[in-house]
Write a protein that binds this DNA or RNA. Structure first.
Lengths: 310, 310
DNA sequence: CTTGGTATG
DNA sequence: CATAGCAAG
């Protein structure tokens, strides 16, 4: 369970969120709870009491711009979380720029950028070099925006994706649905060889329980029936949503809080848009799925998958 | 003379420049000296001892973006300076936006925007409504960029201008010289009726004394011989540079410090680009010309003209 | 509201 | 380095 430190909150709330503290490190959280406290706790929402030990951890985060994320202390989170693999989406990464992640010598970094600068982009950092890295899905139409990359490991394929947003007035709904179909084929092809872990910002809240105000968003991007069905169909091919599998009735568990309503975090008006989707045959390896709603630095929050491979 | 307050400077230097102080007002200065101290002093560089009383004050400032300037507390400066007329350049003002200057009920505001959004733009705020306001100089070629406006008062015409920058590699030197010729005709036409006060960011350092490193900038925008001669010729039509008239040998008096070299203010590596040019017949009304190098909030600093009209 | 890239100074 | 506006989310 999270424990709040007893400090003068009024003073702290006036400080800039990421101001250096006395130790010279940036907490990347609301300052009321230390980063260590957050990482140490397994899951605030623990219902299932899965007592299996984990020995492999994957984290995923839509960081909403690599440069801003680093400035806000993102690396402190990464070092505290210390996952075996870290998947990033929306890096908006421009390959012409050197960045500080290369100095984290315990991670091997692989990046995929959009043709268009400052847009989309994904990355995978892992402690052990993957067997193979694949950029895009060999589709001329859908590989321009740097939205999917795959890293092969011994026991699974890891697919890191930033699914296209259907956009204001759903102008890109059709594009997004076609994109998902292509990705679906890609996943299924891989799954025939080795089980897959599909993670990232999937830009869909699957069911009513996955967003605060379902009724207001029946026709909004990320909650149209088309997007939800598309996701259901992919799952029906032999995968499962690891968070919902572990916590079937857990409401108020979100991974995204819009910046456009500044109160969205405070009122917990969020959406669950980020997932670890796994091949059914990996069920035996699943230990836990944790959401880190207290971590700041992006409009999304990190999600963490705890696995056991013996 | 400016007096420094004895406060712990180390602590203060770490603060953001425009953080609210305990009184809830924003100082808009380095925090070492209060705004009031700065305004109260007439001129740090006082050489001529002109003991005439002043009864009319005009301030001018290239504010480098109205929105940012307001956010940084520009209105605090304006209220402390309390000029009869305030001329602004580079407002980058978009008329579609309401702004807080309208709430200063003791000033009548008149604005001229560029056709192109977020570019150039000038404004005149005055305590008494001008007899007449003229926008632009009735020249099709040169009136698109919102660089000149005139306000007529009882004793003078006030011309507020933001002279075009000759640009990197002097790409716009020719445009700028033609522009100046058109303005020259405009000034002379007005001067036949009533004396003029021509102020603003004139984007020229007239002589070697008017910038820190003349030798390095013999071919830079604002110090080419063409721009300097152009300014000399306008003056020769019957005007004078009020600061240089009062302080003929004063060096190190600048009104612009580039943001590109963050040390430029600290090392006083500046340029004098902002002027009050007056018709010769107004010499008898001139009391003082003050530069406010300690005021922050823009890459330019305010200049203030003290006049006497009996 | 926030991101990054842009043009301009 | 710092401004505004842009497109996107």
């Amino acid at each position: 369970m999270l424990k709040k430190k007893l400090i003068d909150t009024k003073k702290i709330e006036k400080k800039p969120k990421f101001e250096e503290n006395s130790t010279g490190t940036t907490p990347l959280v609301d300052n009321l709870i230390s980063l260590k406290d957050i990482i140490d706790c397994k899951n605030e929402f623990k219902e299932s009491s899965n007592e299996k030990e984990w020995n492999f951890k994957i984290a995923s985060w839509n960081i909403n711009g690599l440069r801003a994320w680093i400035k806000k202390g993102g690396i402190n989170y990464l070092e505290a979380e210390d996952p075996d693999i870290f998947c990033l989406q929306e890096t908006k990464y421009d390959h012409s720029k050197i960045h500080e992640l290369s100095t984290l010598s315990n991670y091997r970094c692989h990046w995929l950028a959009s043709v268009r600068k400052g847009y989309a982009g994904v990355g995978i950092m892992s402690k052990t070099e993957p067997i193979r890295v694949e950029y895009g899905i060999s589709d001329q139409e859908f590989d321009k925006e740097g939205r999917v990359m795959m890293a092969e490991y011994e026991k699974f394929y890891l697919i890191n994706s930033y699914v296209p947003n259907a956009g204001a007035k759903l102008v890109r709904l059709n594009y997004r649905l076609k994109w998902s179909e292509v990705l679906r084929d890609y996943l299924n092809k891989l799954d025939q060889v080795k089980p897959v872990i599909w993670t990232g910002d999937l830009n869909v809240a699957h069911n009513r329980i996955d967003l605060k105000y379902p009724n207001s968003h029946l026709h909004s991007a990320c909650f149209t029936i088309e997007e939800r069905n598309s996701f259901s169909e992919i799952l029906s091919d032999g995968y499962f949503d690891s968070f919902r599998y572990l916590y079937p009735s857990r409401s108020d568990a979100y991974t995204f809080y819009t910046h456009r309503k500044p109160t969205s975090r405070h009122t917990n008006s969020g959406w669950r848009l980020d997932y670890f989707v796994m091949s059914n045959k990996l069920k035996k390896n699943l230990v836990d799925h944790v959401i880190r709603p207290l971590i700041t630095g992006s409009d999304h929050v990190p999600i963490v998958l705890y696995l056991n491979f013996e």
